[in-house]
Amino acid sequence: MKTLHTEALLLRSVDVGESDRILHLLTPRTGRLTVVAKGARRSKKRFPGTLDFFNHLRVQVERRRPTSMPQLQLARLERTFDGIRRESRRFALGCYLLELLDRLSPEGGRAGDLKALFDFALGSLTLLDETRPDAALRTLLELQALDALGLRPELGRCVRCGTPIGAARSRGSSGSGGQSSAAALGFHIADGGPVCCAEPGEMLLPVHAGTLRALEGGLRLGLPQLGRLSLGGQALAEARALVGRFLRFHVGIELRSEAFLEERLTPAGAGGRLAHRDSNADSNARRA
């Protein structure tokens, strides 16, 4: 790369020296790209009002020497997602998604994959700009993020024997009734999918086949349609536990923005709701 002209989203910004900034950008050409914006904190003319979160940018980046960090030369504002700044739940989930993408986005890769990842990032900010999120939307966005990052969990068949989950469910339910059919199906976080033929005593996250089908449905939907998918009650509790743990497994640490997101999506009164469901799911997992 000598000179790169591309679209970009800002994932992270760190002040360095007296007037510079190191920026982590997500671009459809390179994936995650670390650049230095010289004089970004001093000059009001070079990057006026552009280098901010939730701005869709068009940038020009130059790398003068192969060993040096690329420099941001120009940044033009394409669009700003004002709705995200103006509502704390949108802001909380927006920050969480940016941090997640900053942690997991690749630096380089197949052109089609990088474009799909950028389209997911832009699409999810567009969705958040217009939609007040809840726990269900958070879960579906996390799942789509995993998909865009190439970390999609298996949801349709047993990861050990390949049996479709519908068949596994009917096998588990034969002669034992509804609830025990759920107990027959568990999700193995490290293996990344449901297991119908687990060894006795194996730690699996209990999950209903209906929850897996709902999550698969969520992956098939386009981002603008995500809000239409209804996910409530036990399915939401199971989906949160599954996607949350699967994501934590891949990220490796708790994201810094997660505490604020939890606080915003589980306000006093309404929320005890999700916390309660999560704790149910946790106790289910312990029982399993």
């Binding site: 979160f53 802001f91 920050c95 941090e99 900053d102 923005s257 505490a259 604020f260 606080e263």
Partner: peptide
């Protein structure tokens, strides 16, 4: 200011 990405909450 709130900056969840830097771990700064209310």
């Amino acid at each position: 200011a709130l900056s969840p990405i830097d771990g700064i909450g209310p």
